[in-house]
Design a protein around this nucleic acid. Sequence first.
DNA 1: TCCGACACGTGATGC
DNA 2: TGCATCACGTGTCGG
Lengths: 227, 227
Amino acid sequence: MYCENQSSRSMPVKHSLVLDGEKGELVQASGRIGKKIGVPETKTIAALKSHSEAERRRRERINAHLATLRGLVPNNEKTDKATLLAEVISQVKQLRATARRASEGLHIPMDADEVHVEIVEHNGGDGSFLLRASLCCDYRPDLLSDIRQAINDLHIQVLKSEICTLGGRVKTVFLVTTGERDKDGAAGLEVLVSSVRGALSKILDKVSASAEYALDLFSPRKRQRVS
Amino acid sequence: MYCENQSSRSMPVKHSLVLDGEKGELVQASGRIGKKIGVPETKTIAALKSHSEAERRRRERINAHLATLRGLVPNNEKTDKATLLAEVISQVKQLRATARRASEGLHIPMDADEVHVEIVEHNGGDGSFLLRASLCCDYRPDLLSDIRQAINDLHIQVLKSEICTLGGRVKTVFLVTTGERDKDGAAGLEVLVSSVRGALSKILDKVSASAEYALDLFSPRKRQRVS
DNA sequence: TCCGACACGTGATGC
DNA sequence: TGCATCACGTGTCGG
């Protein structure tokens, strides 16, 4: 709600005191105000002085916090106060969004092999994005290490991973984003999507190929069951 | 870095113009300054007017962003500017921390049954915390739904879940926190830890009990293999 | 009465 | 030169 500040704008009041001297001493202005002051001017002077000092301390507190925020948000070392605050609210919004996305639904593996990559969110402003990639296939012992290797090769950051198994089938869902912000926008995003899709498809093909001749100990009948 | 502001503090300059009238009109003060101005006073007046208007617009931008932040951060509707900024930097810090925690190591299930609950992080300032809970046991079809049910009953928020299977064994690791901030601090935290531990132990016992008489299709030999 | 928080207008400074 | 940003001191309001 703040202050209504109506009165101060419509009735600004004449200045009666003025700052002078080398070190911020307050003296009485040449005002024509007939305010009958006999002696207590020194008291008013002191009051104004402490007032301005308090105001300066308040400003220092606020600016200190702004400096902290400037250090917290990446490389806005010399931007405006206003744009700095704008970047901060953008950061908070997207952090909250990703934190919320990180706790959502659980999926169960189906009987058909599947590779799926979709763009959950793409913030054009700072080039950040959110990808959901899923792979559904038969389980094999080195599946997880293969996936892990693919993630390392793609240089992406995994926000959330669900690895869900059901009767020899496994479905893995990854929520991924870029490690730090890069500015190549929608173009680089598309190639990244296809890269992720290609890597997962490669893992899927490796499953099928090895299943051709290798005997897996724990896999039940292959790929057909009740839907 | 900002402005050095040395000069403006040590030499504040005498006021020569003064605000007057009902609606913010600028007039010349009664100053004894002999600045020989013939006509261009109106220009200076207009300049000062546009100046103050621009400054007001700047203030409005900054305050609008502050209001947005005030709406974004939970229930700080009428706090100071300074404390609001302090809360914002706290929010950003903890959001970044949890986002970083959410992408860490992957675990593989071992041969011994295990329930583990530990406090990863406890922020005494706002009562928020971060718990890592893990359960390692044999796989059974309704294990995941049991875990999901336990999470719902505990009223906790899952930031990250890893469900990793290896040869009939499954290890699930959860990174959990409180849904929204509650202020009961360390006391409630301890009871929550033991609640989580108890719920997971219950799930573990149910596995062993059902394994007594039921024939699981996919489980290999029970609980002993190479370490 | 005093103290803290705000909005305001203003001079200085950098582009 | 003007234009935008900043720190400053001050008036005002509420507790």
